[in-house]
């Protein structure tokens, strides 16, 4: 463990807590993409299949349980409890255009042609594009609530911090995982446009409103 990865995990944790607080406090899921949350649930389920078979540390297990638990709870809030506030018209990204290519790529490009490894690779590739339905929804509605912007900023920062973690681990431990790094770079690049808006607007107390 290193400071970059710890900050990355804390940023990820913060993003999930911000999202849950937004939903619980406002009792609304307006502006939140249920499709992105479904993709995140798929990512965590596919990545943490080894939850019960390989024990890394208490921290690792607790975080995995928390991530899986909260993402399914978020889906429950969106599609059941606060269903009335879910904006399905604007959450119209065709996720099959993500899942099929990512699934195919995981078969073709992986570290080892073994079931668990391919499923892990699929989760890595899928995570890098899982935010697209959410960003697409914001571009369609033309704006994002400030709390949703904080959620996205924390979520985007987590993988950016993981990139720093991989640089550190390369020099400190000689650890290098090309698949995770390339997917992490793609994932972080997808947030750049949003990061720019967040820093130039939200930090000055304005709301993010894209030209619709």
């Amino acid at each position: 463990m290193n400071i970059f990865r710890l900050c990355g995990d804390m940023s990820h944790l913060a993003a999930i807590i911000i999202l849950l607080l937004k939903m619980w406090k406002t009792r609304s899921v307006a502006g939140i993409s249920g499709k992105s949350q479904i993709l995140f649930a798929t990512v965590f389920t596919a990545r943490y299949l080894d939850l019960f078979t390989s024990f890394i540390s208490i921290y690792n297990t607790c975080m995995k349980v928390f991530f899986i638990g909260t993402v399914y709870f978020t889906i429950y809030l969106i599609y059941m409890k606060f269903k009335a506030t879910y904006d399905s018209n604007h959450d119209s990204f065709r996720v099959e255009f993500l899942i099929v290519p990512v699934g195919g790529l995981a078969f073709l490009v992986n570290h080892e042609f073994a079931p668990l490894e391919i499923i892990w690779t699929f989760s890595i590739y899928l995570e890098s594009v899982a935010i697209l339905p959410q960003l697409f929804m914001i571009s369609k509605t033309g704006e994002a609530e400030t709390i949703t912007s904080h959620y996205l900023f924390a979520l985007g920062s987590y993988r950016a911090l993981y990139l720093c973690n991989w640089i550190y681990r390369y020099y400190a431990e000689g650890f290098f995982d090309l698949i995770a790094v390339v997917a992490g770079v793609v994932q972080t690049i997808l947030y750049c446009d949003f990061f720019y808006l967040y820093i130039t607007k939200v930090m000055k107390g304005k709301k993010i409103s894209l030209p619709a």
Binding site: D9, N60, F67, E112, E117, Y162, N165, F175, D177
Partner: peptide
């Protein structure tokens, strides 16, 4: 190549 090490990252 073989797995370099267990997946210790989240």
């Amino acid at each position: 190549e073989e797995n370099q090490k267990p997946k210790d990252e989240l």
